Amino acid sequence: MATVKFKYKGEEKEVDISKIKKVWRVGKMISFTYDEGGGKTGRGAVSEKDAPKELLQMLEKQ
C-alpha cells in the first residue's frame, strides 16, 4: 500500500493511505485527516505535486 510523507509542526511523518479518512483541497495543497490509533485523529497536508496518485484519486472520488 502507498504511504504519504509530510511534515506536521516541524516533524517528519508518514502515514499509510488506508488510514486516511477525509481528503480536501486547500489552494495547491491537499489536506487530510487520518486515524492515529487509540481513538485519535491526526492531520496532515502535502503539496499537490508531492501527493501520491492514490491520495489524488481519493480526492476525485469525493
Rank of each mutant, 00 (worst) to 15 (best):
F32R: 00
P52E: 03
A51W: 11
R25V: 12
K28E: 15
A2H: 07
A45N: 09
V4A: 01
E48F: 05
K22A: 15
A45H: 11
K22F: 12
K5V: 03
W24T: 14
G39P: 07
G38E: 11
L59D: 06
A2M: 15
T3C: 10
E54T: 06
Q62F: 03
K21Y: 15
S31W: 08
I20H: 00
Y8R: 03
G37W: 08
V23A: 11
E54L: 07
K19H: 15
K5L: 02
G27A: 06
S18N: 11
G44W: 02
I30E: 00
K49M: 13
L59T: 12
E11S: 04
G42C: 07
K5R: 05
M29T: 13
E48S: 07
D16L: 09
S31C: 10
K28R: 12
T3Q: 03
L59M: 14
P52F: 02
D35G: 05
R43A: 07
V23G: 04
T3L: 06
D35A: 06
E48I: 05
E11G: 07
W24Q: 12
I20M: 06
W24R: 08
V46P: 00
K21H: 13
G42N: 09
K49T: 11
K19T: 09
K28D: 08
E48D: 11
V23C: 11
M58L: 13
K49W: 04
A2R: 06
A45Y: 10
V26T: 14
Y8E: 10
K28T: 10
K21R: 08
T41N: 14
K7R: 07
I17N: 01
K5D: 01
G39H: 13
K49H: 11
M58P: 02
K53G: 12
E14S: 11
K40C: 13
G10H: 03
I17P: 02
K22C: 15
L56G: 07
E12V: 13
E60C: 15
D50A: 09
K53C: 15
L59H: 06
S47F: 05
T3P: 02
P52K: 02
W24I: 11
M1I: 08
V15G: 01
K13Q: 03
K53L: 11
W24M: 10
K9G: 08
M58E: 12
K53F: 10
D35H: 06
K7D: 11
Q62N: 05
I30L: 13
G37S: 11
A2P: 11
E36I: 04
K13D: 01
E54R: 03
K22R: 06
E54Y: 03
A51M: 06
E36W: 05
V26R: 06
E11K: 04
D16V: 09
S31M: 04
S47A: 10
R43F: 10
K49C: 15
E14C: 07
T3D: 01
V23T: 15
K49S: 06
Y8H: 14
L56P: 03
E48W: 04
G10M: 02
K53Y: 08
K22G: 14
M1Q: 12
F6H: 02
Y34I: 02
D50F: 12
G44D: 01
I30H: 01
S31N: 09
V46N: 03
R25K: 14
F32V: 03
E36A: 10
K21A: 15
E54K: 04
G42T: 04
R43E: 14
K61M: 05
A45C: 13
V23M: 06
K9A: 11
E14R: 03
M58F: 05
Y34S: 01
R25C: 15
T3Y: 03
E36N: 07
D35S: 09
V15D: 00
K7A: 05
S31H: 14
A51T: 11
Q57H: 13
G27L: 06
E48R: 04
A2W: 02
V26H: 11
D16A: 12
Y8G: 02
D35N: 04
E12R: 04
G42R: 06
D50E: 08
K7T: 12
Y34C: 01
S47T: 05
A2Y: 03
E60Q: 07
V23P: 02
K13L: 05
E60Y: 05
V26G: 05
F6T: 02
K22W: 13
G27N: 11
E12N: 06
Q57K: 08
I17V: 11
E60W: 03
K49F: 08
E36P: 05
A2D: 06
M58K: 05
K40H: 14
A51F: 05
I30T: 03
V26F: 05
A45S: 12
I17Q: 03
M58S: 04
D35Y: 07
T33C: 15
S31F: 08
K13R: 10
T41S: 12
R43Y: 09
R25Q: 14
Y34R: 00
V4T: 01
E12G: 03
K22N: 15
D35C: 14
T41W: 12
E48A: 08
K5S: 02
G39V: 09
E54V: 04
D50T: 10
K13C: 03
G27T: 10
V15P: 00
L55R: 00
V26W: 04
I20K: 00
K21P: 02
A45I: 11
G42P: 05
Y8A: 03
K28P: 13
K5I: 03
R25M: 10
K53T: 13
G10Q: 02
G38M: 14
E54Q: 07
K5G: 01
K49Q: 09
E11P: 00
A2C: 14
E60D: 08
R43V: 08
K61N: 09
M58Y: 12
Q62H: 15
G39Q: 06
P52W: 01
K21S: 12
L55W: 11
F32H: 00
K22H: 15
E60G: 08
E14M: 05
Y34V: 02
K7E: 14
G27S: 13
V26M: 12
M58D: 03
K13I: 11
F6Q: 01
L55V: 08
V4R: 00
V23Q: 03
F32I: 07
G42I: 06
K53H: 11
Y8V: 11
K28L: 13
A45E: 15
F32Q: 00
V46Y: 01
D35K: 06
P52C: 06
S31R: 06
G10S: 03
A2V: 14
E48K: 05
K40Q: 14
I30N: 01
D16C: 13
G27V: 09
G38C: 15
Q62C: 15
A2T: 14
F32L: 09
G37E: 07
Y34P: 00
K49A: 13
F32K: 00
F6C: 03
R43W: 11
E12Y: 09
G10I: 01
F32P: 00
K28V: 13
K9H: 12
K28F: 05
W24F: 07
K53W: 11
E54S: 04
K61H: 09
K5Q: 02
F32T: 00
F6A: 03
D16F: 09
R25H: 10
E14L: 02
M1A: 08
Q57A: 12
P52Q: 04
Q62T: 10
G44M: 01
T3V: 08
K19R: 07
K40F: 12
D35W: 08
K19V: 13
K40G: 14
G38L: 06
V46I: 10
G42W: 04
E48Q: 06
V46T: 09
G37P: 08
G27P: 13
I30Q: 00
G39S: 10
A45K: 07
K13E: 01
G44R: 00
L55D: 00
V15H: 01
I30S: 00
G42L: 12
L56E: 11
T3W: 01
I20A: 01
E11M: 04
E48C: 14
G42H: 10
G37M: 11
Q57V: 06
Q57G: 09
F32Y: 00
K5F: 02
R25E: 15
K7N: 13
E36G: 09
L55C: 02
M1H: 12
V26L: 04
T41F: 14
Q57M: 10
L56C: 15
T41K: 15
V4C: 01
S31K: 06
E12L: 13
M1D: 07
A51P: 09
T41E: 09
M29P: 02
R43S: 04
A51S: 14
V23Y: 05
Q62Y: 03
K21L: 14
T3G: 02
M1C: 13
E14K: 03
M29D: 14
F6E: 01
E36K: 04
V23K: 03
F6K: 00
K22D: 15
L59E: 08
Q62G: 14
G10T: 02
K22Q: 13
V46Q: 02
A45D: 15
I30Y: 08
E36F: 06
M29I: 05
S18L: 10
S31L: 10
K9T: 01
L59S: 12
V46W: 01
E48T: 07
